[in-house]
Write a protein that binds this DNA or RNA. Structure first.
Length: 560
RNA sequence: GCGCCCGUAGUUCAGCGGAUAGAACACCAGCCUUCUAAGCUGGUUACGAGGGUUCGACUCCCCCCGGGCGUACCA
């Protein structure tokens, strides 16, 4: 338990209220902690102002507090800053990399499925929001004490694979190209989608290829096996580049057969039925409309494998909850899927954790229409921008060091742009905005981190262990310590709301407080005893920044 | 039509029942012989409209107006 949590607990005992009742006053002259009296006053039929005054009069003096007084309908607490600051530094130092974590998840098994790539398609920046959001949610749930299991589901069996293969076979140029195969497949797909359009002849040919794939025989199937692997290799490089790891990966092609059996069972049970040549789930009685499961040409739709996968997850892992991170546009689909899984007899909780989509100034992205910014294009643009900025500032650095730093900046920027706003907001992606370095950006956070490393290097970090923390008497030092103590609250809230932007905003505020302090106070240039103490505080800021960076997947740069 | 989401400074976003609605960008004015100026300081401007619930509403409810998405063989 942190110093701040303990203070709240003690106060809660004395005042007979929950530690969660305390709020932080808007300005420091109003105190450091506050208890609003509205609720209790209402219960007692008293004025909250009178009640606050009475409480202030009767409260026993407590260690760690400088003053307790009523201000209007609030009971305000002023803390002893020296005790608080050394408490905070001690909390951070003791917990280290685990500072901020909690066990509210009670080790419950929670599977988080995200990233869901389509083989034979290009990776575009719309996927990035999914991948980065999902990865951050996974790490945040783990920090909240869940047994979080990150998994990826790869759609390698849909009609899109047949479309790509159809186009590839009709254009020998693809086979001859020396460009990376995974990338070429993406190009080939978007061209295919545009060519096919409403052409019945082409649709017929694609349908034949799809049947070969489903029946696992013929030239179409053979080429599917080969090209599928190209895509999977391409994904693996992509994940490696971004530092993303899954505990398990599922492939649609492994679940289709099981799904078809499930479909037969569901048909027999009357949960599915024939309609207009297709097989559908009529979920009108649940207000969920109609879900087509098998096309009228006999080929499988998405739910076939999804049903099998859902049950496979529950059989393979002990899960309290199965989370699907998918774009909000599929909300109805997931409600339908979850209802079917429930009708199959599963009682586990299933959650569609949705986020709103990413669009561009030129309108919605879709690989089918070719209006996309690909991951590769974004990365290239970002790297070119960041390496220019780095080399401008460090003419003496080696090319390798410049590139490495530029990469850390570029990838972190991509991640941060996708998770810094809450998930219910549409992101209109703009390259210039995304690569900005000032303000609420990952570069600002990284800059703060690098600045801290520079201080620690100059001051010799070993000094911090023998520091006399009573030297920390500046109001801004107290403010920073308070911010550090609040990190755990950000992690908790972020986990409860499954919203990484809470952590993103917290880190930004911490960095702002630090930079403010840095500009106003001499750290290295302070006299020895003060310097040691200040460095101890700075080291704690670094630990918290690093912990937060880890949750969001940002790269901590020592220099930039 | 029905369902879901969003309307807060010029722009992008916080705040989601309580103390003067916060940031960032942009714009203007300052700060590098001093710990990384990718930084810091100061300044201007906002809750779509109307009802209701409440001691108190940007926050909850209703209705309206804008915008987006979904709504049987895309995923």
């Amino acid at each position: 338990m942190t110093y701040l949590d303990n203070i709240k607990k003690q106060l809660g005992l004395v005042l007979d209220c929950s530690p969660r009742s305390f709020v932080y006053p808007p300005t420091s002259d109003l105190g450091d902690l506050s208890l609003p009296m509205f609720e209790e006053a209402k219960k007692l039929g008293l004025s909250p102002i009178v009640l606050a005054q009475e409480k202030a009069k009767n409260i026993p003096s407590l260690p760690g507090f400088k003053e307790i007084k009523a201000v209007g309908p609030y009971l305000n607490f002023y803390l002893e800053p020296l005790n608080f600051i050394s408490g905070a530094i001690s909390d951070v130092t003791t917990a280290g990399q685990t500072f901020g974590n909690n066990d509210s998840g009670q080790a419950a098994g929670v599977m988080i499925e995200y990233s869901n790539g389509n083989t034979h398609k290009e990776i575009h920046i719309g996927h990035l929001r999914n991948v980065f959001y999902g990865d951050a949610v996974y790490k945040i749930l783990a920090a909240n004490g869940y047994d979080a299991i990150p998994v990826s589901y790869i759609n390698d069996f849909g009609i899109h694979t047949a479309k790509t293969i159809w186009n590839w076979q009709n254009n020998p140029a693809y086979g001859k190209s020396t460009a990376p195969k995974g990338y070429l497949l993406g190009k080939c797909y978007s061209e295919a989608a545009q060519k096919i359009g409403d052409d019945p002849q082409a649709k017929e040919e694609v349908s034949l290829i799809m049947k070969e794939i489903e029946n696992r025989q013929g030239a179409g199937y053979e080429f599917w096996k080969e090209s599928r692997q190209w895509s999977i290799n391409y994904f693996n490089e992509f994940y490696k580049e971004l530092g993303i790891k899954f505990q398990d990966t599922f492939y649609e092609s492994d679940f289709v057969d099981q799904g078809l059996k499930l479909k037969d069972d569901l048909l027999a049970q009357g949960i599915l039925k024939l309609s207009e040549g297709a097989i559908i789930a009529d979920l009108e009685e649940y207000n969920l409309g109609i879900l087509p499961v098998i096309r009228s040409d006999g080929t499988a739709l998405y739910p076939v494998a999804d049903l099998a996968l859902a049950s496979a997850k529950f059989k393979k892992y002990q899960l309290k909850e199965s989370i699907y991170i998918v774009d909000v546009r599929q909300s109805l689909y997931f409600s339908q899927l979850f209802k079917l899984v429930e009708l199959l007899g599963y009682k586990e909780k299933m959650t569609h954790l949705s986020y709103d989509f990413l669009t561009t100034k030129n309108g919605m992205m879709a690989s089918r229409t070719g209006n996309v910014i690909t991951y590769k294009e974004l990365l290239d643009e970002a790297l070119s921008h960041t390496s220019k900025e780095v080399s401008k500032r460090h003419e003496d650095w080696s090319e390798e060091k410049i590139q490495q730093t530029a990469r850390g900046l570029a990838i972190s920027a991509m991640k941060f742009e996708m998770i810094k706003v809450s998930s219910d907001k549409v992101i209109t992606f703009d390259m210039v905005d995304a690569l900005r370095f000032e303000g609420f950006t990952s570069a600002y956070l990284q800059y703060t981190g690098a600045r801290i490393c520079s201080l620690l290097k100059k001051g010799e970090a070993s000094e911090t262990t023998t520091a006399n923390l009573n030297e920390l008497i500046e109001p801004k030092e107290f403010r920073l310590a308070m911010k550090l103590e609040q990190y755990g609250e950000a992690v908790l809230k972020s986990g409860l709301e499954r919203d990484p932007s809470v952590v993103a905003r917290y880190l930004f505020e911490l960095a702002q407080d630090f930079n403010d302090y840095y500009h106003e106070t001499n750290i290295i240039k302070a006299e020895t005893e003060t310097r040691k103490a200040r460095l101890a505080l700075v080291l704690s800021v670094k630990t918290v920044l690093e912990n937060g960076f880890n949750l969001l997947g940002l790269t901590y740069l020592i220099e930039m």
